[in-house]
Design a protein around this nucleic acid. Sequence first.
DNA 1: TATTAATCCTACCAATTTAATAGGAATTAC
DNA 2: GTAATTCCTATTAAATTGGTAGGATTAATA
Lengths: 144, 144
Amino acid sequence: MLSKKTKYGLKALTFIVNSDGNNPVQVSAIAKNEQIPQKFLESILLTLRKAGVLGSKKGKHGGYYLRQEPEDILMTEVMRVLEGPIAMVPCVSLNYYEKCDDCVDEDNCSVHKLMIQVRDSALNVFRNTTLADLALKNTEDIVK
Amino acid sequence: MLSKKTKYGLKALTFIVNSDGNNPVQVSAIAKNEQIPQKFLESILLTLRKAGVLGSKKGKHGGYYLRQEPEDILMTEVMRVLEGPIAMVPCVSLNYYEKCDDCVDEDNCSVHKLMIQVRDSALNVFRNTTLADLALKNTEDIVK
DNA sequence: TATTAATCCTACCAATTTAATAGGAATTAC
DNA sequence: GTAATTCCTATTAAATTGGTAGGATTAATA
């Protein structure tokens, strides 16, 4: 299952993209519009900031903003920050590889074999989807 | 993350395929060879039996066996039984659809849009992989 | 300079899920 | 009738998830 953290995070990022203007967007505004518990959202956006996806400005008129153009923010990065490794088992993870303690022969492990395919298919989606794609409204989507 | 339940279940199924002969395979044999806690494995195989993937025979010389040829057992079915819905959010689930309580406009939801693609890419893998594929040894794999 | 509005940080907590374990009942082969 | 097996129910410890609480810090502006 997709965690609420990731779900909220994606919605928040989309909201920021669609809040055009160069002004930082406040947590309160996102929370209200997207129906997300504000304190929880705070921690999520903080995570995204620490990961370098978002920038922030403190104090009055502060808020969060994108550090790159939406077209340049890949879902691989966003998903890794929010949901963790894309691989469903550490032994097929590109960025967080870990050997299974039980598995004797990785190359002959059926789970390993299947999960490599699942990883690759997910990567294929995430590598080819940017935040700009997500933020497209449905009508524009059709045009595309 | 893939649950241990699914991991163990896949390994057990593979083991049964590779235990050629028409004799039922005992839980104890699988548990020992695949390093799986026996009691936990019992419950997993029971689940697979109730779902119709495995058959069982009780009593001495009993055990579990496949109800279909490995070539006819799709990963879609196995994964649904072991891991649950393939979709990461209920609102994109084919078999267990549920509307999000928060989401006002599903067609314009960025999470929805992304998760449909993830679902489809996973389905593409699971629909094109059978238990026979999983059970192939590596050397045969190369030939394929 | 005081006030207000925002992010930032740490800690805590309740509910759920996961990964088992325990103990025995039911069934079958021999 | 005994041993070997699946079947069933209940319990449990640990981890994860989805928050909440409270205040520290920073910045704009009146």
